Computed example of a mutant assay.
Amino acid sequence: MKQFIDFIPLILFFIVYKLAPAEVQFAGRAFEPIYCATAMLIASSIVVYGALLIAQRKLDKSQWLTLGACLVFGSLTLAFHQEAVLKWKAPVVNWVFAVAFAGSHFIGDRPLIQRIMGHAVQLNDNLWAKLNVAWVLFFLICGFVQLYVAFTFQSIWVDFKVFGSLGMTLLFLIGQGVFLARHMHDEPTGEKPKD
């Protein structure tokens, strides 16, 4: 559920981008839909993560990173009136996640995915390492795909940013579920079988 809450600002970004007229006048300046959508992305990120912070009294590190990247890249996009700056946000965030997951193999006592999911899933160290590497590859590939689409297919970039990102994430999570299901075993309950 938490992963889908993170998509709310992105979905609002998409809606504003698609519904905004060709040009919006504000404070004597004309803004194209991408800049209106970027302003919505910033505002909705502040609201969504602010509400989560109030409700949970904390944000995950990944949520802080996403919020920070949104504020930095979104603000620079609006300040310099350059949509190319915003196009770098998703790849950079994905690569930071990839580095964090990769670094956890060398820093700390457990891979990052085990720290995240270890309370819910029991796997041996070898399987945790494989799962962590899968997350590293996922974030690396997502970053490169998003960068490629953003600068090669300008006309579908916003569509891909929302639906392509969501689709890649869903496919990866389904694959992870299949992997985990193959390696999970029923825990003994301590009860004797009935005769």
Rank of each mutant, 00 (worst) to 15 (best):
residue 34 I to P: 02
residue 133 V to G: 05
residue 108 G to Q: 03
residue 180 L to M: 10
residue 194 K to W: 08
residue 139 F to S: 05
residue 148 Y to I: 14
residue 127 L to W: 09
residue 132 N to F: 01
residue 35 Y to P: 02
residue 88 W to V: 04
residue 128 W to P: 01
residue 48 V to T: 06
residue 2 K to Q: 13
residue 133 V to S: 04
residue 66 T to D: 11
residue 56 Q to D: 15
residue 45 S to I: 05
residue 126 N to E: 15
residue 169 T to V: 04
residue 87 K to M: 05
residue 131 L to P: 06
residue 191 E to L: 12
residue 142 C to D: 13
residue 146 Q to P: 02
residue 152 T to M: 11
residue 53 L to V: 07
residue 146 Q to H: 13
residue 160 F to I: 04
residue 97 F to K: 00
residue 50 G to H: 10
residue 181 A to D: 12
residue 28 G to V: 03
residue 141 I to P: 05
residue 73 F to A: 02
residue 1 M to W: 08
residue 161 K to M: 12
residue 16 V to D: 09
residue 167 G to N: 13
residue 49 Y to A: 14
residue 104 S to P: 07
residue 135 W to G: 00
residue 84 A to Y: 07
residue 9 P to T: 10
residue 148 Y to V: 12
residue 38 T to P: 03
residue 20 A to L: 01
residue 69 A to Y: 00
residue 161 K to H: 13
residue 49 Y to N: 15
residue 115 R to F: 03
residue 156 I to N: 11
residue 116 I to Y: 07
residue 68 G to Q: 08
residue 176 Q to V: 05
residue 190 G to N: 14
residue 150 A to I: 05
residue 28 G to S: 03
residue 46 I to F: 08
residue 32 E to H: 04
residue 54 I to Y: 15
residue 99 V to T: 10
residue 187 E to H: 10
residue 55 A to W: 13
residue 194 K to N: 08
residue 34 I to R: 01
residue 34 I to F: 04
residue 78 L to A: 05
residue 43 A to P: 06
residue 91 P to R: 08
residue 126 N to V: 12
residue 9 P to V: 08
residue 95 W to I: 08
residue 110 R to D: 02
residue 103 G to F: 07
residue 122 Q to F: 04
residue 9 P to D: 09
residue 78 L to G: 02
